Simulated assay, not measured.
Amino acid sequence: MRASTFLWFDGQAEEAAELYTRVVAGSAILDRQRDTDGRVVTVVFDLGGQRCIAHNGGPQFTFGGGISLYLDCDSQEEVDTAWAALTEGGKEGPGGSLTDRFGVTWQVVPTALADLLAAAEPAAAERILTAIHAMTRIDIQGLIEARDR
């Protein structure tokens, strides 16, 4: 048995899978399934080690903010690169969240956040969390400065 993320699109499954596999290192499109007219119906792809399925199912369903894709980034450069690609045509949200141009919500979070919070005294952790809520794209240096105030 294996669990996968299934994403329902209205005609943009292939475009979305191509964007996502470009943004997330170690990703690849595994399969494209087409209908009898040659149109892509389903794209199976590996997203940084997680199997995902993008399906062109029509307009019946749309994405909501109650579920999102979480992207751990090892550096500020990774945060910035992913953020720029995923917000193009999309919308920035608070605290490292965004909605891409397809309506999929993402959390783009530096791995440094967990380290900063784990090592922080309670008052410093509160300052870090306050700083995150004031940010859209998370800035690691800004978190360090908040911790050190």
Rank of each mutant, 00 (worst) to 15 (best):
C52K: 01
A28E: 12
R34K: 15
T36K: 10
D35Y: 14
D46C: 04
G49A: 04
Q50L: 07
I29A: 02
D37M: 08
R51F: 00
V41P: 07
V44S: 08
L47R: 05
L47C: 12
I29L: 14
H55F: 15
G38M: 03
V40S: 09
A28Y: 05
F61W: 10
I53S: 02
V40W: 08
N56A: 08
Q50D: 03
V44Y: 15
R34T: 09
A28I: 07
G49H: 06
V44C: 04
T36E: 11
Q33V: 15
R51Q: 10
D46W: 02
G58Y: 03
G38K: 07
V41I: 13
N56S: 14
D35F: 14
D37I: 00
L47G: 05
V41Y: 08
V43I: 15
G48Q: 11
R34W: 03
P59A: 14
Q60K: 09
D37P: 00
G48I: 12
G57N: 08
G58I: 08
C52L: 01
G58N: 02
L30Y: 14
V43A: 04
D31W: 03
N56V: 07
D46V: 05
S27F: 11
D31G: 03
L47P: 02
L47N: 04
P59E: 06
R39E: 13
I53L: 12
S27M: 04
D37C: 07
G48L: 02
Q60I: 04
V40G: 09
N56D: 15
G38V: 08
T36N: 06
G58L: 10
R32C: 09
R51D: 00
G58M: 13
F45V: 00
R51W: 00
D35K: 10
P59L: 04
N56E: 11
G57F: 05
V43D: 03
G49P: 06
P59S: 13
L47W: 03
